[in-house]
Design a protein around this nucleic acid. Structure first.
Lengths: 217, 217
DNA sequence: CGGCGATTGTGAATCGGATTACAATCGCCT
DNA sequence: AGGCGATTGTAATCCGATTCACAATCGCCG
């Protein structure tokens, strides 16, 4: 049978979420290599950098296509572009922030987001004293404008930095206005309906799971 | 055969790390229940709260002992105490912080750590302008004093909030002075030798893995 | 231009964590 | 006191992710 020519528009099967979560790691490493002027990299080398087996990297990538050349490795520039494409990072993303307390302010001021294409374009707070203030070039809006503003700007990503007591309620409201990805800083086991994605940032949980190994000290 | 009386000093087998990472979640939920005055809880109810199967919770707990009563469930107060014990949270922990930039300052000011028994007792920064300043009641020390100070106070937990370029170097130095748990905020795939534990906080990575599912938007 | 070392892509084998399923036990109700 | 619904603890099973292992292919060198 002649070789099929299905190259483009390859059907991507259900990719395990763990795999998706590793892709940004690969991407970041490739960016660094690219900056250092490296043009080609093997799964072996990538694995060394990231402390994982070459096989895992190859298998992960194989979910999305064939990006390497046998006997040679991967073109850093090409794989990097492909990963950006796959992850939807070839475009810029608007992000809404809810909660402009100390944590929220720190997040707004954090310089590491924009270079990666994430732009906080709106901020909300329940405290009337915060509303109207300008933080990092953004005017804090009332929670009353949440739905309205998020929908009007078609924002699909939000960061939640409100007290635990209000976090689930805020998340529910975000889901209602079609936010599809939420980065939650509140220390609660938040719940979102299926198409919506959620990631939690919880330093206390991280510390508490490490002390298990320090019990003897 | 008569029932064995090995109750205490049970040998805990190698517990999977995923299990250890879930324990703080259980603990947190139990604390909430306790505050609400709930005295007994079933794995069923816990599972509902945490969005996981009752069997998983029971299995996780079974690594450490038998804490429930058949037909009844778990005593909230008792299980809570046991989990604290297991996780080494019945005591307070001193924490060192490296990097007192915007992020580091936000971490120091964060009020959620102390109530859980984690106290930032020392802060370090490479920038001479920061050294000597007082942040949240803590005097920032020079990096030259890192080893000395950490060892003198027998600090075993550290938080790294320095630029990516210096993070690995800082981590290496922390490991050298017997720090055994590191919470890393720098966006690098940090490396630590075996007995040392590491957890990464990386909001950008989290965002990048979510955009995969937003590609179509 | 042919052979060789390197490296990919992937089916098959393996591993480990999650789920199932159930005997053992509990407290309560009658 | 005895039966019943509820719930645990865990052995057995299932399932998905990781690793293995190798054929296919590449570029290079002589």
């Amino acid at each position: 049978m002649a070789r099929e020519k299905a190259e483009r528009s390859r059907v991507i099967p259900e990719v395990p979420e763990v795999v998706v979560m590793r892709l940004p790691l690969y991407l970041r490493t490739l960016v660094q290599l690219s900056q250092r002027g490296v043009e080609v990299v093997s799964s072996q080398q990538l694995g060394q950098q990231l402390q994982m087996t070459p096989a895992q990297i190859r298998k992960d990538l194989s979910y999305f296509g064939r990006f390497g050349r046998q006997g040679r490795g991967y073109s850093v520039k090409y794989l990097l572009e492909e990963l950006r494409q796959i992850l939807g990072l070839e475009r810029e993303w608007d992000v809404g922030l809810v909660g402009v307390g100390r944590l929220g302010r720190a997040i707004i001021s954090y310089a590491g987001m924009a270079p990666e294409g994430f732009h906080i374009v709106a901020a909300f707070d329940a405290d009337p004293r915060q509303v109207g203030q300008t933080v990092g070039g953004i005017t804090v809006q009332s929670m009353d404008h949440l739905q309205e503003s998020i929908k009007a700007t078609d924002t699909r990503i939000a960061i939640v930095a409100v007290p635990a007591a209000h976090a689930q309620e805020v998340i529910d409201r975000l889901v209602e206005c079609d936010v599809r990805a939420i980065l939650n800083y509140a220390p609660i086991p938040a719940l979102v309906p299926p198409p919506v994605k959620l990631r939690n940032i919880d330093p206390v949980l991280a510390l508490q799971s490490m002390t298990y190994y320090l019990r003897s000290l």
